[in-house]
């Protein structure tokens, strides 16, 4: 549990949030809203990417975002930690609240935000350095330099990502030598090492084989006890397997959002039903 042990590197966090009482783990539905989107619009130049998105993403569970290619699901995910900021002509309307703070407001520093809202990408992205340095990258960025502390954070992050037993003797080896699935778990470990509250995953298994995919999915469900997880996926079985809530996006609009069971068994909207039953997409 890095969250409790790691007192270093956390000085940027709003003290008000740290002192919030922990929610009991055995009450899964008592989750508070981590993200609140209210009439959120996203434009890239003239292109209207997201249209009036309103939804609440609960804490400590897996929320899936599904929809056909180009529906804006990745853009929605990247709006949550302001990864769209570098897109030329990017403009937003409406609100994204992260624990009550306006993500696009003046008071939010995107660099601090991204530390609290980690992200894992479609293809594994190990940095061209050793396994150890990959995991230590974030903590070092945020000022953690003491060797013993780094060793501890790296080990616990790799353990949490289920990779420690694989790499504990090869920490000095280049990360690029790992297999695809291991690289992706390394990327998850790297994200865990900065001790985020939320982990966003953008089709994290689409470049992996089925057994590596299964391992990642199991990992996500374990991590959901401690982290809020939002996953964009192309794979509807995956959404059904790992998530508690699912959002269905179509052409930039949120068609339906609700418990995953309901979205897949008895959706309210005809378009959702067509998509989950494979009539298009």
């Amino acid at each position: 549990m890095i969250r409790e042990e790691d007192a270093t590197g956390r000085e940027h966090r709003d003290p008000g949030i740290v002192s919030l009482p922990e929610e009991p783990v055995d009450e899964p539905r008592a989750n508070r809203a981590m993200f609140v989107l209210d009439g959120f619009d996203l434009y890239f130049g003239r292109a209207h990417i997201l249209k009036g998105i309103t939804l609440e993403i609960p804490s400590n569970q897996v929320t899936a975002i599904i929809g056909p290619s180009g529906c804006g699901k990745s853009s929605l995910l990247r709006s949550l930690n302001r990864m769209n900021d570098r897109v030329p002509g990017m403009r937003v309307e409406g609100k994204v609240l992260f624990e009550g703070d306006d993500v696009y407001g003046q008071s939010v520093d995107p660099v601090t935000l991204r530390r609290r809202v980690g992200m894992v990408f479609q293809r594994p992205t190990p940095f061209p350095m050793s396994i150890f340095d990959n995991v230590a990258y974030g903590p070092r960025l945020h000022g953690l330099a003491k060797r013993s502390e780094l060793d501890r954070v790296v080990e616990s992050s790799l353990r949490d990502a289920g990779l420690w037993d694989v790499v504990k003797d090869t920490l000095r080896k280049p990360a690029t030598a790992l297999s695809g699935g291991e690289q992706q778990r390394l990327c998850i470990a790297r994200t865990l090492a900065v001790d985020p509250e939320v982990i966003l995953l953008d089709e994290p298994t689409s470049a992996l084989d089925p057994s590596a995919t299964t391992r990642i999915e199991e990992l996500l469900q374990r991590l959901a006890e401690r982290y809020t997880i939002v996953i964009v996926t192309h794979n509807m079985q995956q959404a059904a397997r790992v998530s508690e809530d699912t959002a269905f996006l179509l052409s930039g609009e949120l068609v339906e959002f609700g418990p995953t069971d309901k979205i897949f068994r008895a959706p309210d909207d005809r378009r959702t039903e067509d998509y989950v039953t494979g009539r298009f997409g």
């Binding site: 991204r114 980690g118 990408f121 992205t125 940095f127 990258y137 960025l141 994200t191 900065v194």
Partner: peptide, 20 residues
């Protein structure tokens, strides 16, 4: 993707440039 990965860990542009 590498640039994104570094940015997503809370790196500034300068840190991303120098370290990755």
């Amino acid at each position: 993707e590498l640039r994104d990965a570094s940015t997503a860990l809370g790196a500034t542009q300068a840190a991303t440039l120098r370290r990755v």
